[in-house]
Structure formats: structure tokens, C-alpha cells
Design a protein around this nucleic acid. Structure first.
Lengths: 258, 258
DNA sequence: CGTGTTGGTTACGTTGAATAACACTTATGA
DNA sequence: TCATAAGTGTTATTCAACGTAACCAACACG
């Protein structure tokens, strides 16, 4: 198995070149994941059978255990990939607008988040809707870590904006108690790097934005908003996002939204 | 537990008295569901084994098929129960405050929704987190219907408030396009009975409230907010709910919040 | 009482995850 | 060059769990 314990390419070190075998292995791992995804998409569930994956790949099922110890390990890999992919989609779209337009950035972030969920419903279900039977979410495992990274992409624009002094005063009531204490006296576990600290009230507003965005997208992804036509949902989403962006003190978008 | 399988007591008709056998059967059905729930709680997943349920009940697995055609049917029943239970919890708490205090009612509704999710995390996962693998969520089935009922409990206070003229102007930007047209020209599929129609802008705000509440509670239920201590989460939740209630034009709560 | 319905049993078939034992291929090193 | 080890695949097998079949006991009911 993984006989490369400490490949930890230290920052600055050259990325070790992969041997022929390592490349083949990586390719197979990728193919397995792709097969699992296509099965999931096909059946519209987050379930898959090892035997089906093998059949698609022209292999037999036991061979897959050379690459993943068990079903859960493959599932975990898929979840991590999904989070990373979502995070990347959000970051890409966000960076299409300059840093000095945090309002515009927020809008694109929200759009990307929603768009990804709609275009990849089964993968979204994989990370949003936990319970894959038998899959006991590894507490504090790699999936939690991946989720943190993805969500950090949402948050970085707030830190960015605060750093540039582009945030107005949020319309939130500042909670002078626990929240202030928490925000003021901590090592922020969500920070990506060395961003500026946020005022407590902005922190409140940021979490609120995240939760609202996530809530709308979740409801929509599970079909709980199917009773309204798509154009109504679209308009409602835009209005909601604009509203929470305002509340959080984000300036109005400079860039026209596509 | 609402164990009234198909007794459809039409309004006015006499509630048919259950025979001895029917009562015994209903009791067994209830016991099966309880056993399934306790297994789910024990393992922290939405999964369960028929054989384990049977063992708990001192029966053999095949006997369960006398009560549920298959695993999916039991799962569906559990989901419907969970929605109904959540809806009831929300309604109960809401009605502890008089109708002329919609601000207070909203607060209690939010509190009840969150409280239920925290006290019944596995059942919440069952209805929030997609269909269990192999479980093909019956489109437009009983679960969808149950979800509608539960969510309607959240919404009724808005209709109630509007009927009494207790709603201020929301701070939302009114979308003059699709949303207005949709709200103005429809038979509202979400109404419980003969509530007043909502202004389009209030409708927008209402969905926003729902989504925000749901988003916060979802994130929390899946542990995505575990990085902040509980008192911070509490304060943040209160502040968020107050904020969206304000945005929606709900008056400040008259009743002191417990 | 027979008789049908209901609720239970044991025995069985099937599927699919996971392991074991074995075979072929490829890299590597004396 | 060839022997050996690592890596990747196979077939055969075990095991767990869903679901079905066939049979049996109890009970309601004419």
C-alpha cells in the first residue's frame, strides 16, 4: 500500500516526479472515482456498488481493494474531492472580480455555490446530506478538514474586504457578550493565512451570510422550493443575497452581475 | 406517535373503534419504529438493520415484513413521523405566545426548530440529509407532503400576522418582476387554510427567513459550527433570528423570551 | 367446532462487501 | 541476465443482511 510515508513535499521542495507505476496507480484511482460518480449520477443516489464500478472498468470487484481499503474509504475520498471542487469553483468565480469590489465578489461566490449545487446535485447531496447508510462520518477526519477549507473560500472575501477597509458598519445588533469575547480573544481557526481580524459584529454578519446562503441552496437542492418556478427562485435568491450582503456591510457590487 | 394508518377520519364521521387486533398491530408498528429510532440514535447514523430491530423486540427478522413491505417503507414512515413531530414541536411552542405577538412567535418557532434538531440529531439528519442509499425518495410522495405540512407551520405566523395588519414594511428590495407576478397571480400552494394573501415583498422576506433559519440549523446539526463554543452559537443564533425578523417587518417581540 | 385471517417461525435464495490464495507483470539490483 | 520483490490482477470463498417461501399456532367468527 502506501509505502511512501513521508512524501510531504515541504514548502519549496521540488514536487517529486512520479514513477511509471505511481502514475498508473493515480490514474486508476481517478478512474475508480469517476466510475463511482457516474454511477451515482446515473442512479440519482449517493450509493454505488463496488461490483458495478469494477464492471464499468472491465475489472473484477476485489481488485478495487488494492486502491481503497473499503467502501467508506472511497466514499471519504469522493466527499473530500467534492468539497475541494466546490471550494475551487467558488474561488475561481470569486477571483473574476477585483479584490476592491467585495460586494461583487460576494455575489459571484453565492452564485457559484448555488450553481455548483445545481449542476452537481448528487455530489452536493454527498457533502450536504450526510447519511450514507453505514457510513459513519469520521469525526474530525479528512472530510471535516475539507469542509473547513471549502467554507474558508466563502469567508476569505470578508477578511479581504476588512483588510482594505471596504466594510461599512453592518446593520446587525452587536452582541456585546459571548460573541465579542470569542472574536476578540482567539486564534481564529478559520483563517487561511494572515488576514486581518474581523470586528465582532462583522463576524456575526459573516456567519449569518454563510448560513443564509447555505440554507437557500440546501432547500433548493432537495427540491423543497420546487413549488415555485425557476425564474421566481432566481429572483428570490438574488434579492436574498443582496439583502444579506447589505446587512453585513458589504458595499454594493461595482461590477455588473452576469 | 400518530399511529392512524389509513383511518382517514373524515370530518364529522365517527372515529372507527379499533378492534383488539388492530390495536395490537398498531402497537407493534409503533414498537418497530421506536426500535429503529433507538438503533439510529445508538449508532449515530440513519441506518439500521432489520435483524437488529427484531432482536431488540425479541422477534426474528422476517416477522417485520408483516408490518413493512421493505426497508424503504419503514424509512418512509420514520421520515413522515419526523416531519410531523418537528411540525408539532414548532406549532406547540409557537402557540405559547398570543397571536397578536408575531415577533415573539417567530422567535419561539426558530427556537423550537433549532431545539428539535439539537435534541433529535439523527431524526433531523433523516429529513434534512437526503435519501438513504437505495432509498429513492418517492417524488411527490408522502414524505414531500409531510415536509410541506411541517414547513407550513413555520409560515402560518406570517399569514397570521398579515391578517391582523401587524406586519411592517420589510426592508427587502421588492423584486418587481417574477416574484410579484408569481405571488399576485396564484393559488398559494403553501397555505394551510384561508389565510390572507401576503404582499410579494413579505413573501420574499418569509422565504428568506425560512432559508436562513434552516441554514443555520443545518450547519449546526452537522457540526460545521462546532469550532465556536455553545454560548457563542446561541448568541449568534439569537442575533441572526432577530435580524431576519426585523428585515421581514415582524414587530419586536412583546413577550420576554425564555 | 371448522375455517380463514393474522402473526409468528425456520429454511432458503440472492446480493454484495470483504478476504484468501494464487498468477502474471514490472521494476530493481547483484 | 536473471532472481527476487513489489504491485496488480484473477478466481474461489466467507459472511452479513435483505427478502421470500413454506409451514405452524392462535384467535376471531360464522
Amino acid at each position: 500500500m502506501a509505502e511512501e510515508p513521508s512524501e510531504e513535499s515541504a514548502p519549496g521542495s521540488t514536487e517529486r516526479v512520479l514513477t511509471r507505476r505511481e502514475r498508473a496507480r493515480a490514474a486508476t484511482v481517478g478512474e475508480i472515482k469517476q466510475a463511482a460518480l457516474s454511477l451515482m449520477r446515473e442512479h440519482g443516489t449517493t450509493d454505488f456498488r463496488f461490483s458495478d464500478i469494477a464492471r464499468i472498468m472491465g475489472m473484477t470487484a476485489p481488485a478495487l481493494y488494492r486502491y481503497f481499503a473499503d467502501r467508506d474509504e472511497l466514499l471519504t475520498a469522493l466527499i473530500v474531492d467534492a468539497y475541494d471542487d466546490l471550494g475551487a469553483a467558488v474561488a475561481d468565480r470569486r477571483d473574476q472580480v477585483p479584490r476592491d469590489d467585495p460586494g461583487g465578489r460576494f455575489h459571484l461566490v453565492a452564485q457559484a455555490y448555488r450553481g455548483w449545487a445545481r449542476s452537481e446535485p448528487t455530489r452536493f447531496a454527498l457533502i450536504l446530506g450526510m447519511p450514507v447508510p453505514g457510513y459513519s462520518a469520521p469525526e474530525e477526519g479528512p472530510t471535516t478538514e475539507a469542509a473547513r477549507r471549502a467554507m474558508a473560500q466563502l469567508k476569505s472575501l470578508f477578511y479581504d474586504a476588512a483588510e482594505q477597509g471596504l466594510l461599512d458598519e453592518p446593520t446587525f445588533d452587536l452582541d456585546a457578550g459571548p460573541v465579542s469575547q470569542f472574536v476578540d480573544g482567539r486564534e481564529d481557526p478559520m483563517k487561511l493565512g494572515d488576514e486581518a481580524d474581523l470586528p465582532a459584529v462583522t463576524f456575526q454578519a459573516m456567519v449569518h451570510c454563510w448560513a443564509s446562503l447555505h440554507g437557500f441552496v440546501s432547500l433548493e437542492a432537495y427540491g423543497h422550493l420546487d413549488w415555485m418556478p425557476e425564474d421566481v427562485r432566481d429572483a428570490l435568491f438574488i434579492a436574498s443575497m443582496r439583502h444579506i450582503a447589505d446587512s453585513a456591510g458589504l458595499p454594493a457590487p461595482k461590477t455588473t452581475i452576469s
